[in-house]
Simulated scan of single mutants.
Amino acid sequence: MKVSAQNKVFAMLLSFGLVAGCSSTGETMDDGSYGSDVAAIDQEGGSTVYGGAEGDGVSSSSLSDEERQEARAQAEQEALRNITTFYFDFDTSEIKQDARDVLVAHARYLASNPRQQVRLEGHADERGSKEYNLALGERRANAVERFLVVNGASRGQIETVSYGEEKPVVRGSSESAWAQNRRVELIFQ
């Protein structure tokens, strides 16, 4: 499904406007109104994000249902792409089921942005030898790479590296620490 540039720009403006509206302080102004540039609901039941002193803005009531669904889907994909760390069970490189939708979102993003590069950093917990953990981190990074490629990313966009147990995110010898260290991180460049 191809999305026109106009629809992409509109969805981005809508997203930015909603973020700006959510970041208001809620302090009241001298005239008793709230200090926000977003009207929550207009008379037709849609929201309007105002973009300037002229009072022009983007109104969701002027969107068709299809455009609203497309904007929602794009926002969901963008939110999924904010997740860049994927965890693994002990001594395995199998991608967990709950990570698959997020990785599909990353693969679609890479497919639609062929110049975007990503480095996959594989990690392991401290148990096992250094050599074994380096190999395990590499297997994990390679598993994520294969998944991204199968779902549309180009192999040329992806670099894999294994740090094994060398870069723990949490120090300690508990199951909680180990679970957080068994991971692959996506680093977009």
Results as ranks from 00 to 15, higher is better:
L136D: 02
R72Q: 14
E67N: 13
H106C: 04
A179H: 04
T25R: 11
V150Q: 10
Y87L: 14
G122W: 00
A79V: 05
T25L: 11
V38I: 13
E27R: 12
V38D: 07
V184D: 05
S15W: 08
A75D: 09
F90M: 08
R100P: 07
A141Y: 01
A124T: 01
F16K: 15
F86W: 03
S23E: 14
S129I: 07
T84Q: 11
S15L: 14
A79D: 05
R139D: 13
N7L: 14
Q117S: 03
S174R: 06
V149M: 03
G137F: 00
D56C: 09
S93V: 01
R115P: 00
Q189E: 13
E166Y: 09
I187R: 12
T85H: 03
G21A: 07
L110T: 00
A53V: 14
Y50H: 10
D42G: 14
K130D: 15
T48A: 13
S23C: 10
D30C: 03
Y87P: 03
R155H: 04
V58P: 05
K167A: 05
G51C: 09
R146D: 13
R100T: 11
H106M: 05
G156E: 07
G35F: 10
I158E: 01
T85F: 03
I158K: 01
G35Q: 14
R146T: 15
S174M: 06
L18W: 11
F86C: 00
E121G: 01
Y132I: 01
K8W: 10
R119G: 00
D125C: 08
E138H: 06
S23K: 10
Y163I: 00
